[in-house]
Design a protein around this nucleic acid. Structure first.
Lengths: 335, 335
DNA sequence: TTAATTAGATTAAACGTTTAATCAGATCTG
DNA sequence: CAGATCTGATTAAACGTTTAATCTAATTAA
């Protein structure tokens, strides 16, 4: 009844105590529904992901949930399962559930329309309307600096799909740090698989024969693939070739050798994202919560630096490879 | 106002149409808060996980979210981040958010107390109070049947922690299918790491020297570790040794060679779990939703069979290994 | 023709909370 | 001491929905 007065208004300490006592005696818990109806605040944020089965989803979800619960919000999840149509449908489901704001990790190439509630976008700094993201470009730079610092000059950059902003940023950053006396070749997996079938070999052995000494993947997933393919071909990692990934997925540390990779500061990113949401929510609320303008474009976009995690898949480049001329002419996919 | 009458009561088709028109004209969306207050139904389920960073969390979350949204429920997530204390705290946060039921994947060894709302537990059939789970025992049986069918007789079973019900079930099932002319040795990783440090070698090369031809892990994570360790030691997979995992994590298909593993039927499990919840919710609701009895113990526990996924890490056992005597005497951890 | 039934529309009450408004008593001021 | 001020408690209104109840007019039956 007046329990809420425990903060506002004027009540005697004695009364407040009596209420408290009775409350816990009866096991009273305030109903969120009632509060929500009166105040228009549900205390719930939505989180929509392009595809929950994305391996780095756990990091995102965990960080968002943590950041949200820290400032008193719950997190309602929705999965667009990769389909772009379901993305808007998921958003609709969330706003029907009266979420006060939405954190969205958009599917590749998707633009988030102005919906009726505050939105924070986590994608890549190159995405229009983005709110916060890891600095993928800087991450790309740092990983190749690490490799060039070890003496590597000829790098194979491994990506999956050139349509991804994130992947492009990472590869862009990598390229920008290739020394003038070195060279880099980009290898896109998806087109390759279009032609040779899913799970095909990437022809990495051929690359080392051509003189490449390092394989720089845009994701630990692809790094793992490279790692095992090289192992299989009898090429020692890191003695004969170095391999790096991105994202520091869980298993990066359990493979042998441990994978050198770049890690995002997810807790930070999540904190910024939900923080931005909370700010516009708590600002807009007094007036017209239903008519909230949509995107949190007002708050300037933030880039969070990535961090290098050095493990065992990187080592100094093999001595200037005496036979560096292309011995195996075909660098093709060996599928 | 009477929009809801669109289902109950008696209204003319004409009026119903007029309402609809006006509604969409004004862009009216019914407020969940109001409905929740009146009906006591929030349409939200909670999902609490022992540790979101668990790599198979995506599968669980995705499946639960899908099953829930299919029958009109939203899913609020909560992470107990491994700490048992936070598990109950997470549950409390959820019920404060007025969830109508909770799906919980309990932390190892945790027992779920009777809280004030319906609960479905997903763990292992050996866990008391469990509602639904994959049939880990059967999974263990099937994977070794696959291996013995290929002629393997001496298997190393790799687990992490003997305190896990799930792992014990799997290993139990495995053991139950070891043929009389074969042998099996269990290798627990966690105690090993206690002694030799995290990420230490498991001494697998020694095992193949002793005559073991197959490594059966309780998780793809450990299988991956075994796979790379064997590769590293120059032991061919699957020519010289077979390796299998569990759970069919995302990357199981991208490693080279692709990992043979057992997959849970998560969609099915999720459907059963949220189905059970929905049933008791919709039954209890009319009377006393606040006084719901707690666990969904009433509905009998269900075991969902696991499915074998054969890829390339398993092959017929090498010809009866002529030199099967233990050449490398030390089977110790080589860390 | 009148009373009884009924379809369809309108009104009212209730859910549990918060916030504003009202009220009674006490302290203070002129 | 009377009127003004203030403190703390109590009461009332409102949020948006659903469900029950009331009300009107029209159709049917006697």
């Amino acid at each position: 009844m007046s329990n809420a007065l425990s903060g506002k208004g004027r009540v005697s300490a004695e009364l407040i105590e009596r209420i408290r006592a009775k409350a816990s005696e009866v096991g009273y818990v305030p109903s969120q529904a009632g509060r929500a109806l009166r105040t228009g605040r549900t205390g719930v944020l939505g989180l929509v992901l392009p595809d929950i089965s994305n391996p780095l989803f756990p990091q995102i979800a965990q960080a968002i949930e943590y950041a949200a619960s820290n400032i008193g919000y719950g997190v309602l999840i929705a999965d667009s399962r990769g389909e772009v149509a379901m993305q808007t449908e998921a958003v609709n489901r969330l706003i029907e559930q009266d979420v006060e704001g939405i954190v969205i990790v958009p599917r590749r190439g998707t633009r988030i329309a102005d919906i009726g509630c505050p939105v924070a976008v986590i994608d890549s700094p190159s995405t229009p309307g983005n709110t916060v993201a890891a600095d993928h470009w800087q991450g790309g730079q740092e990983i190749v600096e690490h490799l060039t610092g070890l003496g590597h000059r000829n790098l194979v950059l491994i990506g999956n799909n050139p349509a991804s902003n994130v992947q492009n940023d990472r590869i862009g950053g990598m390229k920008s740090r290739i020394p003038s006396d070195g060279k880099a070749e980009v290898l896109w997996i998806e087109p390759l698989e279009q032609e040779w079938g899913k799970g095909c070999l990437l022809g990495l052995a051929g690359k080392v024969a051509e003189g490449f000494t390092a394989f720089v993947a845009v994701s630990d997933l692809h790094a793992l693939r490279a790692l095992t393919e090289l192992h299989r071909a009898g090429i020692g990692v890191p003695e004969e070739a170095s391999v790096t990934g991105f994202d520091d997925l869980l298993w990066s540390s359990v493979v042998t050798p441990g994978l050198t990779t770049m890690r995002m500061d997810m807790p930070r990113i999540a904190e910024i994202a939900v923080g931005a949401l909370a700010r516009v929510i708590e600002a807009d609320c007094p007036e017209t919560s239903r008519t909230a303008t949509g995107t949190v474009a007002s708050v300037e976009m933030t880039k969070v630096p990535m961090q290098l995690v050095v493990r065992q898949t990187t080592a100094p480049a093999a001595s200037p490879t005496p036979e560096m001329s292309p011995q195996t002419p075909e660098g093709k996919c060996l599928c």
